[in-house]
Design a protein around this nucleic acid. Sequence first.
DNA 1: ATAAATAATGATAACTGTTATTAAAATTAG
DNA 2: CTAATTTTAATAACAGTTATCATTATTTAT
Lengths: 155, 155
Amino acid sequence: MIKYSRQRESIKNFLSDRCDHPTAEIIYENIRKEYPNISLGTVYRNLSLLAELGEIKKISTDSGPDRFDGNIRPHYHFFCRNCGGVFDINMESINHINTIADASFHGSVEGHITHFYGLCAECLHNKDSACINSNSPESIKKEKNENSIDKPNHI
Amino acid sequence: MIKYSRQRESIKNFLSDRCDHPTAEIIYENIRKEYPNISLGTVYRNLSLLAELGEIKKISTDSGPDRFDGNIRPHYHFFCRNCGGVFDINMESINHINTIADASFHGSVEGHITHFYGLCAECLHNKDSACINSNSPESIKKEKNENSIDKPNHI
DNA sequence: ATAAATAATGATAACTGTTATTAAAATTAG
DNA sequence: CTAATTTTAATAACAGTTATCATTATTTAT
C-alpha cells in the first residue's frame, strides 16, 4: 500500500511545471524552499517511485546525473554538446526503426531509446562568438585536447 | 606523446577477440591472467584512452557499468531485458531519423544514440519455461512488485 | 475521535562505478 | 647508456545513488 506524502506531491508538482529536465539535486534544492527539512534520499526515493508508477520519466544520460521529466507523453530528447542542456523534440514517430532492427536480429525487438545530440538553437547562433560557456562539455574537451595527446607512435 | 604499454595492448587485443561487450571489471579479471599485478585504475585509464583515440567504443548503459566494444564499425546494440545481455545488430542505416528530428527542432541535430531492447533469441525461446535467469533485471523487477505496491489511494 | 497498524520521512551510512594522486617502473629520445 | 617523459600499481577520493533505521505522518479499525 502506498500512502500519500506531501513531499511526493510537491516533487510531482514541481516537475510538472518545468520543461528543463532537472536533476535530483536541483529538485532537492527547490523542494527545500517549501520543505526545508526534506532529505536528498527522500527526493531520490520518490523520483524512483513516481517513475515506477509511470507518473514521471527518468532520463539516463551518458555521463552525469539522471534527469527527470514530468511530461510522460511520448517524445524525444536532444542533448546540446555545447551547453549540456536537454531539450524536448516533439517529432513524428520513428517506431519503424524497431521493425528495421527486428529484421536483422534473432530475438524480438520491443522498443528503443534514442537520444539526439548537436547544438541547441542558442549555442548554434553563438557559435562564432567568444561567449562560450566555459563549463560546457565542449570547452572541457577542448581544454583536455590542448594539454595532452599529440600522436601515438605505437598502438 | 603517447608511449606504448603492454597492458594497453593486451586490453585492446582482449576486446578485439570478444563480441559480448564486457565491462571494465570483466576486462580487468581477464587481463589479470596475463598481468596479475595490473590495477583496475589502469584498465579504466586505458579504456578511456582507447575510446578517445577511436580504437574502441564505450557503450553507456541506463544502469550498471559501462561496456566496451572492440568493433568500431557502425552498428547498433540490443539490450535483453531478461538476461541483461548486450548484442550487436548489423542493420541498415537509420540516419534519416536525424533529419526527421532536425525538422522539429530549433538547433542542429548532428547525430543520435539508439539502444534497442526486448528479448534476445535465447530468452525468447525459453519464455514459457521455468528456467529463467534469477539474476536478470526482469526477475528482480518481478520480485519487487510481488512484495510491495498494490494501488495508491492518493496521488 | 482515538488507538493501532503501517508506510514515509530525515539523517546518515554504505555502496557502485569511476577518476585522481603519487612514488616507482617502463618506455622512448638523445 | 643516460635523461626525459609516460605509464603503472596502489590507493584515496569522488559522484551519484541506494540502504538502514529510529521517528513521524498517514491510514485503518474501533
